[in-house]
Design a binder for these strands. Structure first.
Lengths: 363, 363
DNA sequence: TATGTCCATTTGTCTATACAATTATACGAA
DNA sequence: TTCGTATAATTGTATAGACAAATGGACATA
C-alpha cells in the first residue's frame, strides 16, 4: 500500500513523495497524464482535498501542470528560467540623434513583457562597449540589444562573442555586420537613399552633392543607393561631389564639406546630407553665407529627427518601431522559440517638406 | 466589505490580494502578526479552508510565515543580499527636453561606481511610475533616482513610500516635494529666473511677458523669481502678461499664449519663456508672423538645451551635473554614510547669446 | 465546409467539520 | 532556582460534499 495511515508522516506528504518518485524514476514521463484526482482517491483511499494538496505542492515545485477537463500532466523538467527580467541596450550616446526614440521604443515593449531596460552608452568606443558588456553579464541580463559601435567589425564581433559565451542572446539594431550571422533589425538604407535621390532627380536636379561617413555600413548603403539612382537615370557620377570621411561624426570635419558644397563653384543644385544632423549644418552654414534653402540650394536629410524651426525633406526611419521589433525579437530568443537567424528590415518612407525646389519649368 | 461574493474573482484570491495590499501598504508591517485564520474567517465571512488557501499562497510567495500556536507573521522582505549593482532612474520621457542629458550624467557617474542604470519612463503618469517602481523592486535595484511626476504630491509620496518600505534609498532630481523630507538635487530656479528677468530689465525692458506651467514647482519658482525681480526694480506686475496653465506641457495650449504675447497689442518688448521648448515656439511663431527676434521682440528661455540654428539667451541648468550629483548622493546612501537629509542646490548661470535687444540708447 | 450548440469530464472553488501537532505560558513540584 | 507538566491558542491535516468553469469532442445546422 502506498499510504501508511499510522505513520506520523502526513498522508498528503506520503502521496506527494510517492508521486515525486514515480516522476523521477520515469514511471510517469514528461507529457504523461497522471490519474485523475478521483481515481487517485479511489486507489490510495484518501479524500480529494488531500490528493489535491499533494498535487498542488508538486505543481508549485514545477513537476506537474493541471489542465481543466484534461487532467494533470508531468512537466518537462526545465532549468528554472532566470528570475532576472532585464534587457541590456548598448547605444552610442543617449543624447544624440535618434537614440532617445530607440530607447523609448525598446522600453515600452519591454514593459509589455515585464522586463526592465539597462541603458549603456558606448560613445562608439570599443573600450566602453566592452566595459558595459561585462557589467551587463554580471547583472545577468536576459538579452542584449546592440547598436554596433562605429569601429571595426572585429571589435564588434568580440563584444557579441562575449555575450554569446554567456548564453545571452544579442540582436543588432540599425547597423548590421555583414560578416556576422546574427539577428538584426534594420531599415533599407539603399532603397531609402535611392528614393530620396530619385526624388531630387525628378525635380530636375542633376548636380547632387552628398556628404556622409563611410565608417558605418548604414551610411555606406545610402551612398550606394545614391549612386544607383544616378546611374539608373543616366546621370554621371561626379566623385568631386561625394565628400566622405571614414571616421566617426565630427562637426568640424563636416562643416568643411558643407562649405565646399555650398560654394558657388561647386554648382550643385541639391545636396544629400548623410543624416539629419548634417542637414542641420547646411542650414546653419547657409544662414551665415546668405544662402537660402531651398531657393538657392535644395537639401535633403535622412532619419526624420524632430527638428524644430526647419522644414526638411527627409527619409523617415521607423526608429521607435525598430526599438520595439528588436525587443520582440530578443524575447523570442529568450523564450527559445526560434532557431534560424532573423533579419528584420523595416520600411522607410520619404517625408516631403519644403527644403527642395523643383527646377522643372513645367512643374 | 473586502470580499465580493458576486465577483467572478475567486474569494480566496480576493482575500489574498487584499492581504498583499495591506502588507505592501505597510498596514501589516514586517514582524506583525496578522489575524488568526479563525478571526479572518469571522471578519470576511469565509470558511477556514478558503482563508488558508489565500494565506498559503502568500507564504509560498514569501510574504508570510506561519508559526504553529503563535499565528501567521509578515516577513521582513529581505532583498537577497544584493549582489545587484543597479540604480533605477524614473524620468518623465527620455525623448523630451533635458532627459537624455540627465540620463547620461547619471549613467557616466554610475559607471565610475561600477553600477548599471535601469531606465524607466513615467510619462508623468502615476500608474506608469507605480508599475515601473514594482519592477525596479523586483529587480532589486540598490537605489532610485526619481524625477517626480507632474501629478499630486500624494501620489509621488506613495511611490517614494513603496521604495522606502523595501529599504531602497530614493533621491529626487529637479523637482522637489516641499512636504517630503527626502534627499534631493535641484537648481535654484528662483534665483535663475530673477537673474534672467533682471538681465532684461537692465537692457531697458519694462513690459516683460511670461508663459509657463504652474503644475510643477520648478516653474512656479521661476514665476516667483520673475515677480521678485520686477518688484525689486519698481516695475508693476501686470497679470495680463502672465500666461500660465496648470496642466502638463501641451504644444497647442502654449502656441495660443505665444501668439497672444507676440501680437502688437500686448506691447511686450520681451518675453520670458518658461523653458527652452516654449522659447522655440516663439521662434517658430515669430517666423510665421513676420516678427524678428530680437529686433521686434526679445526672447529668453530656461534650461539651455542644445538648440540648433537659434541663438537663445537662456539660463544654463547643470543637468548633466545634476545627474552626476544625484548618483553620488544615492551611492552615499547605499553605503550608509550619511543620516541627515541632503538637499543639494546647484548653481545656474545666464548664457548670453543674441535673442535679446538692448533698448538703452546709451548701450 | 464552416459554424454553432450541447455534453461529459476534469479541475477549480468553497463550505463545514473534526481532530492532531506544536508550543508559549503559567503553574506547581523538586 | 530549576524542572516538569498542564493548558490554551493556533496552525496542520484530513474528510465529505457541492457547485462552478473550462473545454475537447460529438453532433447538428447553415
Amino acid at each position: 500500500m502506498i499510504i501508511d495511515r499510522d505513520s506520523p508522516i502526513p498522508q498528503y506528504f506520503q502521496l506527494q513523495t510517492w508521486l515525486h518518485e514515480q516522476i523521477e524514476q520515469g514511471v510517469f514521463k514528461p507529457g504523461d497524464r497522471i490519474p485523475t484526482e478521483e481515481e487517485l482517491g479511489q486507489v490510495v483511499g484518501l479524500a480529494r482535498a488531500t490528493i489535491r494538496q499533494a498535487i498542488q505542492n508538486l505543481v508549485n515545485m514545477g513537476y506537474l501542470v493541471r489542465k481543466r477537463r484534461l487532467g494533470t500532466f508531468v512537466l518537462e523538467k526545465v532549468a528554472a528560467p532566470s528570475t532576472q527580467t532585464i534587457i541590456g541596450l548598448l547605444i552610442p550616446d543617449i543624447r544624440r540623434g535618434y537614440a532617445p526614440v530607440l530607447a523609448r521604443g525598446v522600453q515600452d515593449e519591454a514593459a509589455k513583457n515585464n522586463h526592465s531596460l539597462i541603458l549603456c552608452d558606448t560613445d562608439d568606443l570599443y573600450i566602453k562597449a566592452d566595459f558595459h558588456a561585462d557589467r551587463m553579464i554580471e547583472n545577468s541580463v536576459s538579452g542584449v540589444i546592440f547598436v554596433p559601435t562605429a569601429v571595426s567589425d572585429g571589435q564588434n564581433q568580440s563584444i557579441i562573442d562575449k555575450f554569446q559565451r554567456n548564453k545571452i542572446p544579442v540582436v543588432l539594431v540599425d547597423r548590421s555586420l555583414p560578416t556576422v550571422d546574427i539577428d538584426c533589425v534594420t531599415s533599407d538604407n539603399i532603397k531609402g537613399a535611392y528614393d530620396l535621390t530619385e526624388y531630387l532627380i525628378k525635380r530636375g536636379h542633376k548636380r547632387i552633392g552628398i556628404t556622409l561617413s563611410t565608417l558605418i555600413n548604414t551610411e555606406r548603403d545610402r551612398l550606394e543607393g545614391y549612386k544607383k539612382a544616378l546611374r539608373d537615370h543616366g546621370i554621371p557620377i561626379d566623385e568631386k561631389l561625394i565628400l566622405t570621411h571614414s571616421g566617426p561624426f565630427n562637426e568640424g570635419r563636416y562643416l568643411k564639406f558643407v562649405r565646399t558644397l555650398l560654394k558657388a563653384e561647386s554648382k550643385v543644385t541639391a545636396v544629400f546630407a548623410g543624416h539629419d544632423s548634417i542637414a542641420l549644418l547646411f542650414y546653419s552654414q547657409a544662414g551665415k553665407m546668405g544662402i537660402s534653402i531651398p531657393d538657392d540650394i535644395s537639401v535633403v536629410g535622412y532619419d526624420d529627427l524632430d527638428l524644430p524651426l526647419i522644414s526638411l525633406t527627409t527619409i523617415h526611419q521607423p526608429i521607435y518601431e525598430m526599438g520595439q521589433e528588436s525587443l520582440k525579437l530578443i524575447m523570442t530568443r529568450i523564450r527559445g522559440e526560434v532557431n534560424s537567424t532573423q533579419k528584420i528590415v523595416l520600411e522607410t518612407y520619404l517625408v516631403e517638406r519644403s527644403s527642395v525646389k523643383s527646377l522643372n519649368t513645367s512643374n
